[in-house]
Design a protein around this nucleic acid. Sequence first.
DNA 1: TCCAATTTTGTAATAATTACAATTTTGTAA
DNA 2: TTACAAAATTGTAATTATTACAAAATTGGA
Lengths: 160, 160
Amino acid sequence: MDGNTDNKEKEIKALLKGKKIRPSIIRVKVLKYLLDNRNHPTADRLFSALENDIPTLSRTSIYNTLKTFLDEGVVSEITIEDGNSRYDAFTGKHGHFICEKCGGVSDFDVKCATCAPESLNGYKINQEHVYLRGLCPNCIKSGGDGNEKNFRKKRCKKSS
Amino acid sequence: MDGNTDNKEKEIKALLKGKKIRPSIIRVKVLKYLLDNRNHPTADRLFSALENDIPTLSRTSIYNTLKTFLDEGVVSEITIEDGNSRYDAFTGKHGHFICEKCGGVSDFDVKCATCAPESLNGYKINQEHVYLRGLCPNCIKSGGDGNEKNFRKKRCKKSS
DNA sequence: TCCAATTTTGTAATAATTACAATTTTGTAA
DNA sequence: TTACAAAATTGTAATTATTACAAAATTGGA
């Protein structure tokens, strides 16, 4: 544990306290993972990533933590793929791309400040999500013609 | 069955044939429902809507039909809410708004032609989805202050 | 009519998420 | 420190949307 790590943990704790969330070990580690690894993990991936570090960890705790974070706006939920919610702790405006072949999700900068038109002015908008689906450069190279019709989400079997 | 209905069915059959999909009764009725009711139904809602009309209908057939339609681009899947895919047969560009209180989904016209930036030019984009979350005018009127923190998707218990 | 291909159906399996009660941990006041 | 209430964590069981699969029914063409 070097000084940098120490500093980062302090920042994370401060961030949580600012949102009136008690910075328990699990919460700090989940948020740290999300900030260190911008890979939009599912709940299960978070569990797998942290279970070595926190031997008594349960999946329910991951779900509880994420629910707390969602309620307080610490993270946002990415539903680009049905049946596999992913989580993102980065608050700057950005969109999400999913490759229909490899399933990888990446960020991109959206061109427009907002897509919401004036016609929605009776509404209160809390969140805006832009999702793109397609093929990433790697998968294009490795043979996809870009017209695969049979891509469907595959439920990700739990890894452990 | 008036002449209009007849005409519409003929159009739907032609549309399916154009996509090399045999226009079975179930397929025609599912697509007709989606075109007549722009309410972004879930698979289960489609089943409920059609089971009286097609007494032997099974949920699997709804899923099969939707998969066929998705593969051929007849419908698109809306994943604005995790765990409840919705389906849309309208192909014109539009976004989807979900009310965090009543769960209703509605269309809106997106302001921008595309949100994808030039930085994605090594990618092949097949679909673009814009999702907004918030409160609809009705729910604002009926008391929401617009800051409800505890909205979470509720799995929709099957209706029958 | 007959047959092969396609569609439909019912049942069982899968897997993400939630409900809930029991246990553990934490913060604080005495 | 000790005691206690509140909060957090855990494990198990339940829920539910979706998929897998094989059997049955239907369809279209020879």
